[in-house]
């Protein structure tokens, strides 16, 4: 396994005592896989991502990347981790520094990790990355506020992928976008996964999106993994009542297919 979270526990102190945000959460992501993590708001998704990316120290458990335990890792090990694990945020309007040009944003990782030290080579690299995510290289002199939400998310993906990470964590990357743009971004992620051999941990509350992209699915409810398995297993034969409720809540666009409530939605294409 490329990336493993084992028995992660995280609590937060409040006036009413400690609140358990994550309770013994374990999940693993194999190299080249796309794994989905589904849960509603407040289920602990964001806390899990923060723990997974070493932004918060969990109370207990282990984070292992490529065989290295990352809790209590050395500076150099953390630097290597940052080089290989990247994040795409939910809201492309707040995840891009408004005072940096697209070139600076996409090229920042190349600077930080000393991958391309010459400005000219870096510009070529950025141009190439922009083309890959479907933007024009001419766009690199512009600032993020002159782009639409979907374009911004492409910039964010280019920024994350510019340093060629092995694992991309996506925190609800399309939920802030229009439905028509959602599919474009999801398809882009899917292409990236295939073309670059990228491993993806995809966190979302939208089941249809997860179903389209992820071969393996975890369901998080109130800080616990209540169900996990392959896409077909979880979507066709959910065992946990929470998963069943989630699936029942997915609107089915075709009225003739609606009555048998638990029938799965047709796979989007």
């Amino acid at each position: 396994m490329l990336f493993e979270l084992a028995h992660i526990t995280k609590t937060f102190p409040t006036a009413q005592g400690r609140i358990t945000s994550l309770d013994d959460v374990s999940l693993s992501v194999g190299e080249g896989q796309a794994v989905g993590l589904v849960g509603e708001s407040g289920s602990g998704k964001t806390t899990l991502i923060r723990c997974a990316l070493l932004l918060t120290q969990p109370d207990g458990g282990a984070v292992t990347f490529d065989g290295t335990s990352m809790l209590g890792a050395t500076r150099e090990q953390v630097r290597q981790f940052r080089r290989q694990v990247q994040l795409v945020f939910q809201d492309p309007f707040s995840s891009l520094n408004p005072r940096m040009t697209v070139e600076e944003l996409v090229g920042e990782g190349l600077v930080i990790h000393g991958i391309e030290n010459s400005a000219a080579r870096r510009r070529d690299s950025v141009a190439e990355m922009l083309t890959v995510v479907g933007l024009r290289p001419d766009d690199m002199k512009r600032y993020p506020n002159s782009f639409s939400g979907g374009q911004r998310q492409r910039i964010a993906i280019a920024r994350a992928l510019a340093i060629r990470p092995r694992l991309l964590v996506c925190d609800e990357p399309v939920s802030a976008l229009d439905v028509s743009v959602q599919a474009q971004v999801i398809n882009l992620l899917r292409e990236m996964q295939k073309a670059l051999g990228l491993t993806i941990l995809f966190v979302a509350h939208d089941l249809a999106v997860v179903r389209h992209l992820c071969a393996h699915v975890y369901v998080l409810n109130r800080g616990k993994i209540v169900e996990s398995g392959s896409r077909d297993q979880v979507f066709d034969h959910p065992t946990h009542p929470y998963t069943q409720a989630l699936l029942a809540a997915v609107p089915i666009p075709d009225p003739r297919r609606r009555p048998p409530r638990r029938q799965p939605a047709p796979a989007a294409s």
């Binding site: 990247q86 707040s94 995840s95 891009l96 920042e108 920024r159």
Partner: peptide
């Protein structure tokens, strides 16, 4: 706590870089 600062942190930016390129200008 802005997302773009967290993003730069995930990208591996040093404290100095976070401050001078992301936090202070904004």
């Amino acid at each position: 706590t802005a997302q773009y600062v967290v993003g730069a942190q995930v990208l591996g930016a040093s404290k100095w870089r976070l401050m001078t390129r992301h936090v202070l200008p904004n």
